[in-house]
């Protein structure tokens, strides 16, 4: 499972970086989405994958026993997802607005337009 996730992360990073380097703002935005997902998976994987051991203190014990699923990692991802949701919503409107006033999503045209 670790290997599958690691490969997925690598694939997402590669495609995300490729899209980020494109000239079209829409593709850059998609690149950001992919990179964001890759990052969340990194946090997910780093918090360790442990199945079937919820972090619940059993009966008389006062401490958790060693292999248990770490809830903090997932809490971090949840925070990151919520934040990136807001940021992406803004970025999408920005790209849309850019398309409306420049009539294109090509960043090179933006530069030409400004130099005029």
């Amino acid at each position: 499972m670790n290997l599958v996730l690691a490969l997925t992360i690598g694939f997402l990073f590669a495609t995300g970086t490729y899209l980020l380097l494109r000239r079209s703002t829409v593709k850059i935005l998609l690149g950001i989405v992919l990179l964001g997902n890759a990052t969340n998976l990194v946090v997910f994987l780093c918090a360790r994958l442990i199945r079937g051991r919820p972090p619940i203190i059993q009966g008389e014990d006062h401490v958790l026993h060693a292999p248990y699923a770490d809830p903090l990692g997932q809490a971090l991802i949840l925070t990151a997802i919520v934040i990136s949701f807001g940021v992406l919503a803004f970025a999408m409107i920005l790209v849309r607005r850019g398309y409306d006033i420049f009539g294109t999503d090509d960043t090179d045209t933006f530069i030409e337009e400004e130099q005029k």
């Binding site: 980020l20 964001g36 890759a38 990194v42 946090v43 994987l45 780093c46 918090a47 990692g73 970025a91």
Partner: peptide, 16 residues
């Protein structure tokens, strides 16, 4: 945005 992702990646690794 890219910088935020690098930050989060680093955080994940550091936490791991």
């Amino acid at each position: 945005l890219f910088s935020s992702m690098m930050f989060l990646c680093g955080l994940g690794l550091l936490y791991g």
